[in-house]
Simulated assay, not measured.
Amino acid sequence: MAHTPVNHPARPIYRAIGGLTGLYLVVFGVLGIITTAGDELFAQDDTHVLGQGTNFGFSLLSVLLGIVVLVGTVLGRNIDVAINQWLAYALMAIGLGSLAFIRTDANIFNFSVFTVIVMLTVSMVLLMAGMYGKVGSEEEAEAFQKARLVL
C-alpha cells in the first residue's frame, strides 16, 4: 500500500511492541489456563484473570494467538507485519462481536466489558505495529518518500 511507511525509523520499536503484545497474550492465556483448569471449555461463570473475564477456551485461544504473534516477531521479514495486521482485524471482530453478546448465552468466551476493552486495545496496538513495521528495499523506501512528499 502506498500509505504504509516502508523502513520507518522506529520499526524496531514497533516490532518490539508487537512482540510484547504477543507475550501479554501468552501470559494472560497461561494464567487463564491455570485458573480455569478443570472447568468446562466454554464455561460461563465469574472467572477473572488480570481483571478480565475468561474461560478455558478463551485462555487456550489467547495462548495460541500470542504464540503466533511471537513467532511472527521472531521471523520478521514482513511476516510479522502481515500477522499483526490480520490478527488485529480478527481481534477487533471478536471484541465487537462479543460485546454484542456479552449478557447472553452466546458469550462463549465469558467476556466482560473490561475484556472487550482490552481486546480492542490489543488489536489497535497490533495494527499499529503492523502498519509501521514494514521493511523494504531502498527503492521502495525512496518511492514511499516521494509519494508522501507529493501529497
Results as ranks from 00 to 15, higher is better:
Met1Ile: 04
Ala2Asn: 12
His3Lys: 12
Asn7His: 08
His8Phe: 15
Ile13Thr: 10
Tyr14Lys: 02
Tyr14Leu: 12
Ala16Val: 13
Ala16Ser: 14
Ala16Glu: 10
Leu23Ser: 13
Leu25Val: 03
Val30Ile: 15
Leu31Asp: 03
Gly32Tyr: 01
Thr35Met: 09
Ala37Met: 11
Asp39Ser: 11
Asp45Trp: 00
Phe56Val: 00
Phe56Ala: 00
Gly57Met: 08
Leu60Cys: 12
Ser62Asp: 05
Leu64Asn: 09
Leu64Pro: 02
Leu64Phe: 15
Thr73Pro: 00
Asn78Ser: 00
Asp80Val: 05
Gln85Pro: 00
Gln85Ile: 15
Trp86Arg: 08
Trp86Val: 11
Ala88Lys: 04
Tyr89His: 06
Ala90Pro: 05
Ile94Val: 15
Ile94Arg: 00
Gly95Pro: 02
Gly97Trp: 13
Ala100Thr: 14
Ile102His: 09
Thr104Tyr: 11
Thr104Ser: 15
Ala106Met: 13
Phe109Ile: 03
Asn110Tyr: 10
Ser112Ala: 09
Val113Asn: 07
Phe114Asp: 12
Thr115Ile: 01
Thr115Asp: 02
Val116Ile: 14
Thr121Asp: 05
Thr121Glu: 04
Val122His: 03
Val122Pro: 01
Gly130Lys: 03
Gly130Tyr: 04
Gly130Ala: 08
Tyr132Phe: 15
Val135Ala: 12
Glu138Tyr: 07
Glu139Tyr: 10
Glu139Ser: 14
Arg148Thr: 09
Arg148Ile: 00
